[in-house]
Simulated scan of single mutants.
Amino acid sequence: MILGLLAEGYDNKKIGSLLFLSEHTVRDYVSSLMTKLKAKNHTQVVASAFRLGLLNEVFKICEKSEFFCGRKFKEMLLNVQ
């Protein structure tokens, strides 16, 4: 879910608010994503995830949950595919 919200452009504080997590927890998750994807910033995380098809997996989850992934994210993925 964090990856999907990053793709929508939300910052750590807003993601934490939406998912009922602390900003620190979100930062740790994002840091883990950055390490795994060898990314230097949020933009590179999203770009790498897109290239690897990870956003498609997030989209499948989001199809069933409007709460975690907004319409903007869904529309973006539908227009790309």
Rank of each mutant, 00 (worst) to 15 (best):
V80L: 14
Q44V: 04
L52A: 10
Y10H: 13
A39E: 11
T35N: 11
D11I: 04
R51T: 01
L21R: 03
F73D: 09
N41A: 01
A7N: 03
L6M: 13
K13Y: 13
E66N: 01
D11L: 07
I2L: 12
C69D: 09
S31E: 11
F68C: 11
E57R: 06
K13S: 08
R27L: 14
G70M: 10
I61Q: 04
K64G: 00
V80F: 15
N41W: 04
F67C: 06
T35K: 14
L77Q: 09
Y29E: 14
K72W: 15
S22G: 15
T35P: 00
K14S: 08
T35D: 02
G4M: 11
S32L: 15
V58C: 02
V80G: 01
S31D: 06
N12P: 01
G53C: 07
I15S: 05
K14A: 07
V58L: 04
G9W: 14
Q81H: 08
E75M: 02
F20V: 04
A49C: 12
R27Q: 12
Q44L: 14
G16S: 02
F50R: 14
M34T: 08
L6H: 13
K40P: 10
D28S: 06
K38N: 15
T25M: 02
V45Y: 10
F20S: 00
K72N: 15
G4W: 15
V58A: 03
T43G: 11
K13T: 05
L33D: 04
D11F: 10
V46L: 01
K14M: 10
L37M: 07
Q81S: 04
M1V: 08
E23N: 12
F67I: 12
